[in-house]
Design a binder for these strands. Structure first.
Length: 411
RNA sequence: CGGGGCAUGGCCUAGUCCGGUUUAAGGCGCAGCGUUUGGGACGCUGAGAUCCUGGGUUCGAAUCCCAGUGCCCCGACCA
């Protein structure tokens, strides 16, 4: 991609009412654009990042046998009435009717839709378990959208649903999802904390939240500074500074955090309400055991910006960066096109700043966008290429083949 | 939904208190020309504004009054 063709160009100043870090930097650098409160366009750069996040999620969910599909957003009132959530969730669900008086809700989650699918297509225990997921927009009527892209009324989420013949099988898979989520957030580069939480409108059971400690977060969590124990503020009843109840060695600390994922062992509640039964080995009708598991991928992008930036801009890691490498062409550079093409032939995604603008502006914008590897070619570099990582001061002069080797080794 | 703040070319702001030399100003950005080019460079020329909306007061309103809308922040609520 050539910088001259990339839409849109960076802004020199953030919008005046942007206070949170992710709002300021993502808008300035051209990753997102606000349509209204809680409603954002993912611009080409932002869409690249979300796709890279989604790809990591996809790989890990596929690895635990998830099958990807896509469910509708506009859903009939009747299906929500079966579980009573048309009323229970009316504050969070956008509900409306068409000219014929038929009523619809925009899905804020998909348990009912998934359960309808299961009851139509699952007959026997041999059909179970089933693991289905999709990446889709979620609509939630937030009383107060805020914090840039962190809490919006329309956002992208991966939601996975599992159906089982027994509670033991559900809980076994629940544990597998928990481990997959830990791998996902590790691969994305986060220091993620798993906290026990309540289920809200979803379930009466304890659930788990995946939290990124950050001052920009709106949740408060409590966790052990030595082991993986953690609870959110609805659950936590102890005192900060006390010994960890799990390992006894660490002590409990408190932090603000951004919730990026959650998992719910929902049991048979949905199946009983919606009459989703299977026949077991003893020819008995039994309700399907059910779980749901979500990761807000647009929120993940915002969370990363909150924890990884400096006064110059965003600092992406190689996993979720919009491009692998930012090639900055300054006056006197030789063979820019050839270098650009060679990098692409090596399988790398390259943003090539070939614009005829002041050198300083190119360098400043490169820091703002935050691609992890910056290559500068100029009169000074002669036949070599200057290599610099976004999070390091050090620069080195390398040959093209050394650059390619290093990039391929790193990715 | 309660409380607070803000609203002026695409963006950021001055002007608003105390109405009138405002033909609404400046910076950025944008267009043209030229000089530049290792940290948002410079000169000249130029385009670009329902001063959030509606109503009112007045000889005269960006400025005063009334009503409304939008956005941001705190809280409540929530993934």
């Amino acid at each position: 991609m050539k910088s001259s063709e990339l839409f849109p160009h960076a802004l020199k100043e953030p919008p005046k009412d942007a206070e949170s870090i992710n709002h300021q930097l993502l808008v300035r650098a051209g990753f997102i654009d606000q349509l209204m409160a809680g409603s954002w366009t993912l611009l080409p750069l932002g869409w690249r990042v979300v796709n890279r996040i989604n790809q990591v999620i996809r790989e890990e969910i596929n690895a635990i046998n998830g099958q990807e599909m896509l469910m509708p957003l506009m859903t009939p009132r009747s299906i929500w009435q079966e579980t009573g959530r048309w009323q229970k969730a009316e504050e969070v669900m956008y509900q409306f009717s068409d000219d014929g008086g038929r009523e619809y809700g925009l899905a804020f989650t998909h348990e009912e839709i998934l359960m309808d699918l299961l009851r139509k297509r699952v007959n026997t225990y041999a059909d179970l378990p089933i693991y289905l997921y999709h990446f889709s927009t979620k609509f939630r009527n937030e009383a107060r959208a805020r914090s840039g892209i962190l809490r919006s009324r329309e956002f992208m989420m991966k939601d996975l649903y599992s159906a089982h013949a027994s509670e033991a099988d559900l809980m076994d898979y629940y544990q597998k999802v928990k481990e997959a989520y830990i791998r996902i957030f590790q691969r994305l580069g986060f220091n993620c904390r798993v906290t026990e939480a309540l289920g809200g409108v979803f379930t009466e059971n304890y659930t788990h939240e995946f939290q990124i400690p950050s001052e920009g977060g709106e949740d408060v969590i409590f966790y052990c500074d030595q082991c993986d124990w953690g609870q959110n503020k609805e659950v936590f009843k102890g005192q900060v500074g006390q010994p960890c109840p799990k390992c006894q060695k660490g002590k409990i600390i408190q932090s603000r955090a951004i919730e990026v994922g959650n998992i719910f062992p929902l049991g048979t509640w949905f199946a009983e309400k919606m009459k989703a039964f299977f026949t077991d080995q003893n020819n008995q009708k039994r309700p399907i055991w059910f779980g749901s598991y979500g990761i807000g991928s647009t929120r993940v992008m915002g969370a990363w910006v909150e924890i990884s930036h400096d006064d110059k801009g965003i600092i992406w890691n190689k996993t979720m960066a919009p491009f692998d490498v930012h090639l900055i062409e300054l006056p006197g550079a030789k063979n820019a096109l050839e270098i650009y093409q060679k990098l692409q032939e090596a399988g790398l995604e390259v943003l090539w700043d070939e614009r005829d603008i002041n050198a300083g502006q190119k360098l400043v914008e490169a820091d703002l966008i935050g691609i992890p590897v910056r290559l500068v070619i100029s009169e000074k570099t002669k036949d070599q290429i200057e290599w610099r990582l976004r999070n390091k001061e050090k620069t080195e002069l390398l040959s093209l083949s050394e650059v390619v080797n290093r990039l391929q080794k790193e990715s």
